[in-house]
């Protein structure tokens, strides 16, 4: 573990920018998000959960897959510089691993020959992730339900703890180790500081609400699939896509062609299972025409189907959906309702 003083932070970012395009949490009058920064001045390390999740760096809301003319097609050129993301939280770094299951390598399951999405892989493989520990989690955070925590390091390359005067770095992955090895200006940390980190961790964990045991969530969701409880859960949902679009793990998309004359482009766009059109078939038939079916789909995908495929829940407990839901349909309460349900 090594550290840099807060006074050296600007310099650190400047050096990082020599080899990387740097993304970090930014407040710019719009929804807080991870954006490419010009200098350390753009970074807001106080934001705990950006409103827009950093998944959009790897899997943008709209992405041109290729452009075409009558002469042929071409894939748009990507930036060649690798990129670094500063200030991601554990709930977001974990989400990248989950998405990598779908678009990249399956981590948990021995399915080696799965489809690999070149658009995702190109970015994910070229990225250095700095995970900033959450010293003061929000009341809507429930990462501890799903095995995460404010000081959990899963999914990061370098784990960073902010103390009153410094940032303390710990290498997590090989990529992170290599990066820290090349670091010359930083100083080693003392035992006193290790204790300080322990203390910060303890305080952070004490802020989290009581942990819910979700070990039976998988079997329970399967059991109640055709029970009337879903009508009760879904009653207030207005079927907008706010939850899915701020979620760091939702990854469904639609493909749309936009053409005019003899040229055009094919675009991949975020989609949401909350929308009626999501499952509407060309015949006009819609297997999920009702709100209840769509709400059930979202909950089942998160806490059952994904578990079936990749051995983990598709939720990191970031709490973004809890904050944005216009009708306060709180996913934590949905989970509790499901766990408490008796046939």
């Amino acid at each position: 573990m090594i550290k840099i003083k807060k006074s050296e932070f600007s310099e650190f970012i400047k050096n990082l920018q020599k080899n990387y395009s740097v993304f970090a949490p930014v407040t710019d009058g719009k929804a807080t998000a991870f954006k490419k920064i010009k200098s350390a001045d753009d970074i807001n390390n106080k934001i705990l959960n950006t409103k827009r999740s950093p998944k959009e760096i790897f899997f943008p809301q709209s992405e041109v897959l290729f452009q075409y003319t009558e002469r042929g097609m071409e894939v748009p050129k990507r930036e060649e510089k690798p990129f670094a993301i500063w200030g991601m939280r554990n709930c977001d770094t974990k989400s990248l691993l989950m998405l990598d299951n779908v678009f990249g390598e399956a981590h948990q399951m021995p399915k080696k020959d799965m489809y690999k999405d070149p658009y995702w892989k190109e970015k994910y493989d070229n990225c250095l992730v700095f995970n900033l520990a959450c010293n003061e989690p929000l009341s809507t955070c429930f990462c501890n339900w799903f095995g995460g925590g404010p000081f959990d390091k899963t999914g990061s390359d370098i784990f960073v703890v902010e103390t009153d005067d410094s940032y303390i770095f710990e290498a997590v992955s090989d990529k992170g180790k290599k990066f820290l090895k090349e670091f010359k200006t930083a100083e080693e940390i003392s035992d006193k500081e290790i204790k300080k980190i322990e203390k910060l961790k303890e305080t952070a964990e004490s802020y989290l609400a009581e942990k819910q045991d979700v070990s039976s969530l998988f079997s329970k969701t399967k059991e109640i699939w055709d029970e009337p409880i879903w009508d009760e859960i879904a009653a207030k949902c207005v079927n907008c896509g706010a939850c899915a679009f701020v979620c760091p793990t939702c990854h469904c998309f639609d493909v749309s062609d936009e053409g005019k004359g003899n040229k055009g482009k094919r675009i991949r766009l975020w989609d949401s299972c909350m929308f009626a059109i999501f499952t509407k078939e060309a015949s006009g038939h819609n297997p999920r025409s009702q709100s209840t079916q769509r709400v059930r789909q979202r909950v089942m995908h998160k806490y059952n189907y994904f578990m079936d495929n990749y051995d983990e829940h598709l939720c990191t407990g970031c709490g973004r959906c809890v904050v944005v839901c216009p009708v306060n349909l709180d996913i934590r309460e949905v989970i509790k309702k499901i766990l408490d349900y008796k046939k």
């Binding site: 896509g241 009626a276 944005v324």
Partner: peptide, 25 residues
């Protein structure tokens, strides 16, 4: 309008927006 994430929360909570199929869909 450049802030918009096209989640349609505005439309879906709006009492005046009750079309069975919205033009954007």
């Amino acid at each position: 309008y450049s802030k918009c994430i096209r989640c349609y929360a505005c439309r879906n909570v709006c009492p005046a927006c009750y079309c069975n199929e919205c033009f954007v869909d």
